[in-house]
Simulated scan of single mutants.
Amino acid sequence: MHARFEPLPAPTRSQEAHDTAQALREHPDQWAHIETLGNLNRATNLAYRIRTGRHSAFRPAGAFDATARLADDGTANVYACHISANERDS
């Protein structure tokens, strides 16, 4: 074991998630398929993280809606949309 002193690397984020969130912002109130995952539990968890803003790309909380749907092959699809300010205020 050895000590090598060097600057700490910058934290990285998933650019793909940020790009997806930006695309949704550019098309408010339109649903889009954003991900296919191996099972409904994982897809539901991601949808929850998007809705609540726990996924940093989809903040502030409440700015996005998301849902998961089971596919015929057993995988699950995640759909999301950016909620326009007019819709959030009503």
Rank of each mutant, 00 (worst) to 15 (best):
L37T: 07
P9W: 11
E26G: 10
N39V: 05
M1K: 00
Y79N: 05
L40H: 02
G38A: 12
D29H: 10
E35T: 02
P7C: 07
T67A: 14
C81F: 11
F64H: 05
R42M: 08
H82E: 00
N86F: 12
A3S: 02
D72Q: 08
P9A: 11
R4V: 04
L40P: 04
E35C: 05
A47H: 07
F64R: 07
E26P: 11
G38N: 10
A61L: 06
L24A: 03
E6L: 02
D72M: 10
T44Q: 13
E6D: 01
I83V: 15
A63I: 04
A43D: 02
S90C: 12
H55P: 00
A85W: 07
F58S: 01
L24T: 05
S56T: 10
A47I: 06
Y48E: 08
Y48G: 06
R4I: 01
S14T: 14
R25I: 10
L40V: 06
A47C: 11
M1D: 03
A66E: 06
E35H: 09
A3Q: 00
H2G: 01
L37G: 09
T36Q: 10
I34F: 08
D72T: 11
D65G: 11
R13T: 14
V78N: 04
A47N: 09
H33K: 12
F58K: 01
A68I: 10
D89L: 09
S56L: 09
L37I: 04
A57I: 10
R54E: 04
N45S: 12
L37Q: 07
A17D: 15
A80N: 13
C81M: 15
L46H: 06
H55Y: 03
A76T: 10
I83H: 07
R13G: 07
T67V: 13
I50C: 01
H2V: 02
Y48L: 08
S56K: 01
A61T: 07
N86Y: 14
G74C: 13
N39L: 06
E35N: 09
T36E: 08
T52P: 03
E6C: 00
N77Q: 11
T67E: 13
I50V: 12
A76G: 11
L24V: 09
E16M: 14
W31N: 00
V78Q: 05
T52V: 09
R69M: 08
R42P: 02
L46P: 02
T67F: 12
L40I: 13
A61P: 05
L70F: 05
A23G: 14
A76E: 07
E87Y: 00
F5S: 04
A23V: 13
A10W: 14
C81T: 10
R59L: 03
G53M: 00
F64E: 04
A63G: 07
D72H: 10
A85L: 14
A17C: 07
A23Y: 13
R25T: 08
D72Y: 02
H55E: 13
E26H: 12
G38C: 09
R42G: 06
N41R: 12
L8H: 04
Y48S: 08
F5Y: 04
Q30C: 05
A63K: 01
D73N: 15
T36H: 05
L70H: 09
E6P: 00
P28K: 03
T52W: 01
T67S: 13
A43W: 03
G53A: 03
F64A: 04
T75Y: 03
P11G: 06
